[in-house]
């Protein structure tokens, strides 16, 4: 069995450097469903980027005479009560929604994973203090926190991302801490210490990669919930303002007129659902791809 891989390939493999992510990519490429999810997400992002050039109408272009019209040849997804084209509004909305979804989740991910890993690995009093801070932030009413931020810094879309991210990281921190608490009792962490590796190296190379499974699953769940949170804030007038749009905002307006004009709810809702499915497929695929124990064939 010693020669099933030629020496040259071993050398090349080692020189290129091996990383979990390269291996993960090789495995992900074999997972059709995950690739499909990735494709959908990328397409959505592309459309969002290109919206100003490809949108059929302007996002505030009204046609009051038309009013709320069902889907037709001119307006594929119908129009809202002001006669604005829904397709255009969903396309413009995706810019805000995807940005909120990814940036806020990214913020939550970065803070949460770091905070949780450090707390879990340090243990003892450091852990106790760090987790009490998390508890206190949990207890703080979310709305008051956001309103305070808005009052102090003024309304700003970037601030909105940060504010949502700053709230969502709490759960992430708890999940990661729990993982790390059980990981750090494993002997491979002790082995890393006795090899003389620095704490940061241990956290980066030995702890974080092993927490990825639950983190990825939770991340794919966070993205849609963040998008809805943005809708809620916008609805209260704390987020983006009409005539700008986001999926969440379109959905909440759609709910109000659900009985008269169902397409106003149907299409934004469908878009969000598709995104959510795609994210879940991708997330599951990533989790499996990042777990070497999953079958590699």
């Amino acid at each position: 069995m010693s020669s099933s891989i030629p020496a040259a390939e071993i050398l090349e493999y080692a020189e290129k450097g091996t990383s979990l992510w390269q291996d993960a990519w090789i495995r992900l490429r074999k997972n059709t469903l995950a690739l499909f999810g990735l494709g959908v997400i990328l397409t959505l992002c592309l459309i969002a980027l290109m919206t100003p050039f490809i949108a059929p109408y302007g996002y505030e272009e009204q046609n009051l005479l038309l009013g709320a019209a069902p889907p037709s040849a001119e307006h594929w997804l119908g129009t809202d009560i002001f006669g604005r084209d829904m397709l255009t509004r969903i396309m413009y909305g995706s810019r805000v929604s995807l940005m909120v979804g990814f940036i806020a989740t990214g913020v939550a991910l970065a803070i949460g994973v770091l905070w949780g890993t450090i707390a879990g690995y340090a243990g003892g009093r450091v852990d106790a203090v760090m987790m009490r801070i998390v508890d206190i932030l949990y207890a703080l009413p979310f709305m008051i926190f956001i309103v305070l931020l808005m009052v102090v810094f003024g309304r700003n879309i970037l601030l909105l991302f940060l504010a949502i991210g700053a709230v969502e990281w709490l759960t992430m921190a708890r999940i990661v801490r729990g993982q790390v608490l059980s990981l750090r009792r494993q002997e491979f962490v002790e082995a890393a210490v006795s090899l003389g590796l620095s704490r940061w190296t241990i956290i980066r190379r030995h702890l974080i990669p092993n927490t990825l499974g639950p983190v990825i699953v939770y991340t794919t769940l966070t993205i849609p919930s963040v998008m809805l949170l943005e809708a809620f804030l916008s609805f209260l007038g704390l987020g983006i303002q009409p005539p700008q749009s986001s999926w969440g905002l379109l959905i909440s307006y759609g709910v109000e007129t659900m009985e008269e004009y169902p397409w106003l709810l149907l299409f934004p809702g469908l878009t969000l659902s598709i995104t959510l499915f795609a994210l879940n497929f991708l997330g599951d695929g990533l989790r499996d791809a990042l777990d070497p124990k999953a079958s590699r064939d």
């Binding site: 091996t18 494993q186 491979f188 990042l290 070497p292």
Partner: peptide, 12 residues
């Protein structure tokens, strides 16, 4: 079973 990092290859 617990003294080796499950996400690192023999090389790593």
């Amino acid at each position: 079973y617990s003294s080796l990092n499950p996400r690192m290859t023999v090389f790593d």
